[in-house]
Computed example of a mutant assay.
Amino acid sequence: MLNVIDHGPADTNEPPLLIVHGLFGSGRNWGAIAKRLSPNRRVIAVDQRNHGNSPWFDSHTYEDMAADLAEVITHFGGRMDVCGHSMGGKAAMVLALTRPDLVNRLIVADIAPVTYGHDQNQNIQAMRSVDLSKVTKRADASAQLAAHIPDTTLQSFFTQSLDVKEQRWRLNLDVLDAEMPKILSFPDISGRFEGPTLFLSGANSDYVAPEHRATIREKFPKARFAKITGAGHWLHAEKPREFVASLEAWLSHSAL
């Protein structure tokens, strides 16, 4: 089973919330968000396959990831609300479409069920370029990454997946590189999820475009859309308080 970080149980009648991170992330990245939400409900954050402390596999498809999430939900006793960001949002959508019996409500953070043209392989190459034998602290890795990735925020994000003591990445870079076309795409699934669904996006992001709405509504007929002002694709990290407030407001007003 996937590695999980269990923030709970909360002593409430609210259903538990499963948080699913995006590419190159981990459940640990969502610790602050999970803690802010956990007084009102049990919150469980996962490390997806080939990420964090979860097992490594030779494949990384959305069907794989959805099956992993289904195993976690079943292990904890049944249905959950599910929130997924980016790649995690796609995995959460596939779970809802294929196993609607396991999902109460769905929150999709800044991603649509479509194929994207951008590539992430350059970031994999940047991480591969780091001479881990010369890394004794995360700042050492950031300094090396700077030659390829000038954005200090991204440097910090990537090095959170670095095991400094073991001098290894907690990312299966070879498989993520090979499976990148599948990660950028979205599988052809004929199902529909009839439960409440929120597509929450950063106002400065173009990941969920107006032309995507027809496809979204076809698969998620109860979809609602909201944006967080001043946020981009990493809306939960850029505007954490607003992100939590948006989730809590929607969860409190959307009927199960």
Rank of each mutant, 00 (worst) to 15 (best):
L97M: 10
A92R: 08
I73R: 13
T74R: 15
D68C: 08
M65Y: 05
M87S: 03
V82F: 11
G84V: 05
L106N: 07
R105K: 14
E71L: 12
M93V: 05
V94I: 12
I73Q: 09
M87K: 05
I73C: 14
L97G: 10
D110T: 11
M65L: 14
T98C: 12
H85D: 00
A112R: 08
V94H: 04
I111M: 14
V108F: 04
V114C: 08
G77M: 10
G88C: 05
G89A: 04
T74V: 13
I111S: 11
G78V: 07
A109I: 06
G88I: 00
I73F: 04
D68R: 11
T115W: 00
R105C: 01
T115A: 15
H75Q: 13
N104A: 10
K90Y: 10
V94Q: 04
G77W: 03
V94E: 00
V108Y: 07
S86H: 07
M87Q: 10
G84K: 02
P113G: 11
C83M: 15
D101F: 00
I111Y: 12
L106T: 02
K90S: 11
E71H: 14
M87L: 11
S86D: 12
L106I: 09
A67G: 10
L97E: 03
G88N: 08
M80Q: 05
A96E: 07
R105A: 02
A91H: 06
V72N: 07
G89S: 07
M93D: 11
M87Y: 02
T74E: 15
R99C: 03
C83F: 12
L106P: 05
N104V: 04
M80G: 01
F76N: 11
V94A: 06
A96T: 14
R79N: 02
D101C: 05
V94T: 09
G77P: 10
L106K: 06
T115R: 12
C83A: 15
R79S: 14
F76T: 06
A112Y: 12
T98M: 01
G84E: 03
G84A: 07
I111N: 13
V108M: 05
E71M: 13
G78H: 08
G77D: 13
A91R: 03
P113C: 05
A96P: 14
C83S: 14
R105T: 04
L102M: 10
M93W: 09
I107S: 13
R105N: 06
M93N: 12
I107G: 09
A109F: 06
G88Q: 00
T74D: 14
M65A: 01
R105Q: 03
V114A: 13
V114T: 15
H85E: 00
M93P: 13
T115M: 07
V103A: 02
A67F: 01
R99N: 05
A109C: 15
R99M: 01
L102I: 06
F76K: 04
G77C: 09
A66H: 02
N104K: 11
G88D: 03
V103Y: 05
A109M: 06
I107N: 06
